[in-house]
Every structure is written in structure tokens, then in C-alpha cells.
């Protein structure tokens, strides 16, 4: 039983980071109808910025949680302004290709700048693990596990509330619902798009801060995060922030359970099996925002 509890907690730690990255993808897609395949690159840059602040510059860890989201958010808004805005009237295929190669460019730029296998970032919080007695055995929980899971989930929930209840969120939802109508109501397309990219980028940056100690910083981080975040977003419903949050946690737990009780090789396969099952059973995802109309 203790082992099962530890497996679930381990899965929640991975899942919370997936959820945060997935929410960033959904925010950008919901407001701008752009599927951002460069999101993994932004997460990787968030992890890299954490390395620079904490390891190179030796700033206190908490500054990374404040500075990195702002930096990566500003970078994402800058990318929207310089690359995505000129593509706004292009067809969907062009925009998708644009974000795919933007992500590749971000990873390769990092590889060129830092020719190293991996940059390691220490844990934000360390200390003796906590032992929880369960029957005859004890489940071990580390402080880092609690911090990453709790912190990433708190940020994800904050993003959810921001999107649902703030003026900012309302403007993004209006733009997503009907761009012409939103403009007539006085919302600026440029401002809303820039804000959406900033918010999505900031969430990617935070996902990078949380992921850095447990995954290290390398160009491969971009690929591994984007794959999991997309699966989480699709499971959740792609336009649902709550769905992305739950999809991320579900994916993390399923992956870890399969690694523990099937094999490590089955881990990735099972996440895609889960994706196909959800798409076959509920193509709109588990928590769709828009209701299906039966006619």
C-alpha cells in the first residue's frame, strides 16, 4: 500500500508540471486559435533561465519564480509580435509549421549556446523526507515532491481563476468566441493576442522553473514536455483550462503507474493509448468547454 501511495504521489509531481505546460497551450489556443508547437521550447527556456539565475548568478531560488515567468512571457509576446502577427491571415497549416520550426529554432539556439549534455539545477527546497506510516510500511514523501506538486497546481488553479473571472480573461474568452463581436465590444485584437501569448509564455516559464530540478536543462526537455503537454491538453478537451489541469495530472499518474506495474518501456506507449481511448470515446476530450449539439 505504501508503495502504491508513493507511486501516485510521484505521478502527481510529474502530472502537475504537465498540467501547467498544458494550461499555457490552452490559453494561447483559446484566445488566438493558434496551436503553439513552440511551447516546449518556451518551457525549456524557462528551465534554462532558472539555471542562469540560480546556478550562474547565484540568486535566491524564489527570484526565479518571479523573474522567469515575466521573461518568458515577454519573449512569447515578442514572438507573437514579430513572427505570428505577420502570419495571422495565413492558413492554419502555415501557422502550425511556423510554430513547429520556431520551437526547433529555440532548442537549437540553446544547443549552440550551451554545448553540454545537461545543465543541472538544484532542488528549490530540500531536507529530510517525511515518512508516513501506512500499515506495516511507510510511504516516503520528499519536500521537493510536495513543493513541485503543490506549487504547480496552485499556479494552474490561479491561471484558471484569472481566465474565468478577470477582465483580462473575459477579453480573451470574448476574442475566442467571436473575434468580430469582441472587436465591436471594444476589445483590441492586438492587445488580447499579445496578452494571451504573454500569459501562455509565463505559464511555460513557470513550468520550466518547476521542471528544471527534476528533469535538468537540455534541448530534449522541449520535446518531452511538448509531447506530454499536448496529450494532457487533448485529454482535457483542448479548450478547457480545467480539462488541461486534470488531463495533466491523469497523464502523470497513468504514466507512473504503468512504469511501476508494467514496465518503463510501456510508459510512453500507455500515455498514447490513453490519448486514443479518450479520442475514440469522447473526441471532444473529457472536459469540453463547448457543448456538443445533437441535431
Amino acid at each position: 500500500m505504501a508503495e502504491f501511495v508513493m507511486v501516485i504521489l510521484g505521478g502527481l509531481k510529474f502530472g502537475a508540471v504537465y498540467a501547467l505546460a498544458a494550461i499555457g497551450i490552452v490559453v494561447i489556443h483559446k484566445a488566438t486559435r493558434t496551436v503553439n508547437f513552440a511551447h516546449g521550447g518556451l518551457v525549456m527556456l524557462g528551465a534554462f533561465a532558472t539555471y542562469v539565475l540560480v546556478v550562474d548568478w547565484k540568486w535566491p531560488y524564489w527570484t526565479a519564480y518571479l523573474v522567469v515567468p515575466l521573461l518568458i512571457g515577454a519573449l512569447a509576446a515578442g514572438l507573437e509580435l514579430s513572427i505570428l502577427r505577420p502570419l495571422r491571415r495565413a492558413d492554419l497549416f502555415t501557422v502550425v509549421l511556423g510554430t513547429i520550426f520556431l520551437g526547433t529554432a529555440l532548442s537549437e539556439a540553446f544547443r549552440l549556446a550551451y554545448n553540454t549534455e545537461l545543465l543541472a539545477v538544484p532542488a528549490a527546497i530540500s531536507g529530510a523526507p517525511i515518512f508516513i506510516d501506512i500499515g506495516e510500511d511507510a510511504a516516503i514523501v520528499t519536500l521537493e515532491q510536495i513543493w513541485v506538486t503543490g506549487g504547480a497546481l496552485a499556479v494552474g488553479l490561479a491561471g484558471l481563476f484569472l481566465f474565468r473571472y478577470s477582465t483580462l480573461g473575459r477579453s480573451m474568452r470574448a476574442m475566442a468566441s467571436n473575434i468580430r463581436g469582441a472587436q465591436l465590444c471594444g476589445y483590441s485584437v492586438e492587445r488580447v493576442y499579445a496578452t494571451a501569448w504573454f500569459t501562455g509564455g509565463a505559464l511555460a516559464g513557470l513550468a520550466g522553473v518547476f521542471a528544471a530540478p527534476s528533469r535538468g536543462v537540455s534541448p530534449e526537455l522541449a520535446v518531452s514536455i511538448i509531447a506530454s503537454a499536448f496529450v494532457a491538453a487533448v485529454i482535457g478537451g483542448f479548450d478547457s483550462l480545467a480539462g488541461a489541469l486534470i488531463g495533466g495530472l491523469l497523464l502523470g499518474v497513468v504514466e507512473t503507474l504503468s512504469a511501476a506495474y508494467v514496465s518503463s518501456a510501456a510508459k510512453s506507449a500507455i500515455s498514447f493509448v490513453l490519448l486514443f481511448l479518450v479520442l475514440l470515446w469522447r473526441p471532444e476530450g473529457l472536459f469540453p468547454e463547448a457543448k456538443r449539439r445533437h441535431v
Partner: peptide
């Protein structure tokens, strides 16, 4: 066993802990 560049060792470590 694990694949090159692995970051998650759940299955291997649980087996050893057992």
C-alpha cells in the same frame, strides 16, 4: 535496465526497493 538519457527511474527503483 534503462534507455540512454532516461530521466524517470520509477519502475527500476521500485523493483529494487521491493
Amino acid at each position: 535496465e534503462f534507455d540512454q538519457d532516461s530521466r524517470d527511474f520509477t519502475s527500476q527503483l521500485i523493483s529494487m526497493a521491493r
